[in-house]
Design a protein around this nucleic acid. Sequence first.
DNA 1: TCTTGAAGCTCTAGTGACTAGAGCAATTAC
DNA 2: GTAATTGCTCTAGTCACTAGAGCTTCAAGA
Lengths: 138, 138
Amino acid sequence: MFSIGDLSRRTGVKVPTIRYYEQMGLVAAPERSEGNQRRYSRQELERLAFIRHARDLGFAVEDIRALIELSFHPEQPCGHADKIAQEQLISVREKIAQLKRLETELERIASCCDGKTVGDCYVIRALSDHALCADEHG
Amino acid sequence: MFSIGDLSRRTGVKVPTIRYYEQMGLVAAPERSEGNQRRYSRQELERLAFIRHARDLGFAVEDIRALIELSFHPEQPCGHADKIAQEQLISVREKIAQLKRLETELERIASCCDGKTVGDCYVIRALSDHALCADEHG
DNA sequence: TCTTGAAGCTCTAGTGACTAGAGCAATTAC
DNA sequence: GTAATTGCTCTAGTCACTAGAGCTTCAAGA
């Protein structure tokens, strides 16, 4: 049996976050010791590792909830799980595209500043005047 | 003079967000009409456009507050403004790098699933078993 | 001038995914 | 046995808004 601290060290999920997941119903409330401390089984360790991994991949808690539900029904078609993963991939790609536009703009803004004072600082001017932008963003 | 709705249409910042910025002290509390409605000048329109632009570029509200402060002191050296922009650029690049790692992993996970049921779904298996990951992420 | 509907007002609470802190109780190592 | 560490619950805070209730003001047409 693992204490909440053991679980935290083994999964990399912080202790208060584990308790938060329990509150949100992502992990089941575990057994308790005589002194009311949480005691986890290996199964619960694996569940938390699953959640950690999915969170690292950017899945929302609601997505993870759905994936866990699905894993309880191994006989069902897995199209739903695929869909969740595909949507996450699309969302990640959109974020990358957006951030790349910002990167381009910021490079222009941050590299052009050769003024000495705020009065002729390109950073400030560029932010004041959208027309200085090379292309549309945001 | 502009109503809050005019300002919203011209800058693309939503009405409740403008009031929120006022509460946070990012924009000054404007004059009021006899009936207590906000009335903005062109200067305030420009300020809000500045904020909008900076938010689009991913600057935090606190960064924007600092940039606005700086813009009030055009005689000061602009090193601080540059620093804020440079840090934002670094942060954006880090986010891009992280998201690209996720993209790679998600591509692997979401494309490999040729199972018919959840029981042999690669999505679920990959999330359960970090060892299936090609490289470290998160 | 009157009316009506849109736009505005304040205030509170909710979002997501935690994080921090207070004030205790239990466990563990020496 | 005792001291340090870990654990417990509960509340509130984070960020940048967003939603809703319940009310008032404004602007345009009849």
